[in-house]
Design a protein around this nucleic acid. Structure first.
Length: 452
DNA sequence: TCTGGGGTCCTAGGACCC
DNA sequence: TCTGGGGTCCTAGGACCC
């Protein structure tokens, strides 16, 4: 509930006066910046325009963005830089180290422009954004119009080139965007919603099923083996068959291609469910002390991200591995998930746990290439709010829990812990008697931290 | 010689509980 | 004590995405 919005009441009024349910079908746009990192660099260095440019990953390891000129040379995403050097010399490719601060800033500018076009916006990635176009018909009777206006304005205000895809579902909008990028005849805007049936079918029958959002390499192989090669063929495959063979995700994908929207716009930024911090080393290392320094620093930055979203985590995973590309060397890769006695975002506690795990998985005599940590079991409701709870039940655990509560309340100086209630006989469940988010701890955790 | 980093979702299997 | 079915939680691993 909780939707006492104007939309709702209007909806009901119309039903009552006319008896017609005004079903306004959803419509999505996907706006995507072309060659985003390269375009950002060009915005600040016009000398790069019309020249072949790549942006390289951390340690200048591999190409993570390519200009059209570089794509035309056949360079694939993720190609290692050392394999590109000859080609680069030959064609005068400019290689740049990545500058994520710049890209983040440019991304914010684009997103804020898009918010002027629609109140319903999902920032999908640093260079992509879904817009809900539903309800904008009075402003833009033909959706293609809004697409061109968006393109024009972003170009004018940021110099960045974008393409716009429009369709009845997010998957179709993605596909339309892909077409807008690949087929110059569309001038950067592909709008399925106003396209003729013939043109639509002709497009779908020529595009590889592997281009569909959610169809990766593996799935595409399986689809091809089953004779499903084009988007059209995939769409016309019975959803039940898709479910039986590939599961619920692909079944949903099938519906989305049929124009039945299954994926909603996610307008609010959901808190992260896991937070990773990891990096490859510039050179191989083998000592525990060096690994420890790296792991400690990763843990610290991960904990910072965790606190920024007002969360705590209940476990930290630490992992290390050798260089898998050096196939002739002996390989080692391992990880360990270290549970925390209490959910926390405290850097020192997390570092201690991570180093504890690292010591157990570390083996001397290997040349390590990468290390990192993953924070898991994230509880984003833990916002340190005061809440009032009651305790039900009467077995000895109640008394023990009360004691624990006292200890925690003393420690934090306020009511921070949720209380458990007793079910019918022996089952315990958490019960919150407050609407506000609370800090929760699990019954199983209690004896570990407060056994004595 | 040199090969990124950060996410999500789903599934399977084991431990444990009732 | 006999027993099975149903449920949760956790972890690992795969596939996919940008």
């Amino acid at each position: 509930m909780g939707s006492g919005s104007g939309d709702g009441s209007t909806f009901y009024r119309i039903i009552m006066s006319t008896g017609i349910i005004p079903v306004s079908r959803p419509l999505f746009a996907l706006v995507d910046v072309n060659n985003f990192y390269v375009s950002c660099e060009r915005a600040f260095n016009p000398n790069l325009i019309n020249r072949p440019v790549v942006v390289l990953s951390n340690n200048d390891g591999c190409a993570v963005a390519r200009s059209n000129e570089v794509k035309a040379l056949g360079v694939k995403m993720g190609t290692p830089w050392f394999q590109l050097k000859d080609l680069a010399k030959q064609h005068g490719i400019v290689a740049l180290s990545s500058n994520y601060t710049l890209y983040g800033d440019m991304s914010n500018r684009v997103m804020s422009i898009l918010r002027d076009f629609s109140p319903h916006v999902e920032v999908y990635s640093i260079d992509e954004c879904f817009l809900g176009l539903q309800g904008l018909q009075s402003l833009w009777p033909i959706p293609t119009g809004i697409g061109h206006k968006i393109r024009h304005r972003i170009r004018q205000w940021t110099t960045l080139p974008v393409c716009v895809g429009i369709g009845a579902t997010k998957t179709l909008a993605k596909l339309a965007n892909h077409i807008a990028k690949k087929q110059p005849a569309f001038h950067g805007v592909c709008d399925f919603s106003t396209m003729s049936y013939e043109q639509y079918e002709a497009l779908l029958s020529t595009i590889d099923a592997g281009e569909v959002w959610g169809v990766g390499r593996q799935l595409n192989l399986h689809l091809n083996a089953a004779g499903i090669k084009t988007v059209q063929a995939l769409r016309d495959t019975p959803p039940a068959w898709l479910r039986a063979n590939f599961g619920v995700v692909i079944e949903r994908l099938g519906y989305e291609l049929r124009g039945i929207s299954c994926l909603a716009l996610e307008e609010v930024l959901a808190p992260k469910k896991q937070i990773i911090s990891s990096r490859s080393f510039g050179q191989l290392i083998d000592h525990l002390t060096e690994l420890s320094e790296s792991v400690a620093s990763h843990t610290s930055s991960a904990a910072e991200k965790l606190r920024r979203q007002n969360s705590v985590c209940n476990a930290i995973q630490v992992f290390i591995r050798t260089n898998p590309f050096r196939e002739q060397e002996k390989q080692y890769s391992n990880c360990m998930t270290v549970p925390l006695p209490n959910a926390s975002s405290d850097t020192r506690l997390l570092v201690r746990a991570a180093l504890f795990g690292l010591k157990r998985i570390y083996r001397p005599g290997y040349a390590y290439k990468k290390a990192g940590v993953i924070l898991t079991g994230i509880d984003s409701a833990a916002v340190h709010q005061e809440s009032l709870f009651t305790l039900h039940g009467a077995d000895d655990r109640s008394a023990r829990l009360m004691k624990v509560l006292d200890q925690l309340n003393q420690r934090y100086g306020r009511e921070t812990v949720s209380v458990f209630s007793v079910g019918s006989n022996k089952s315990w469940s958490m019960q919150r008697e407050s609407m506000s988010p609370c800090y929760t701890t699990k019954w199983q955790d209690v004896p570990i931290a407060y056994a004595h």
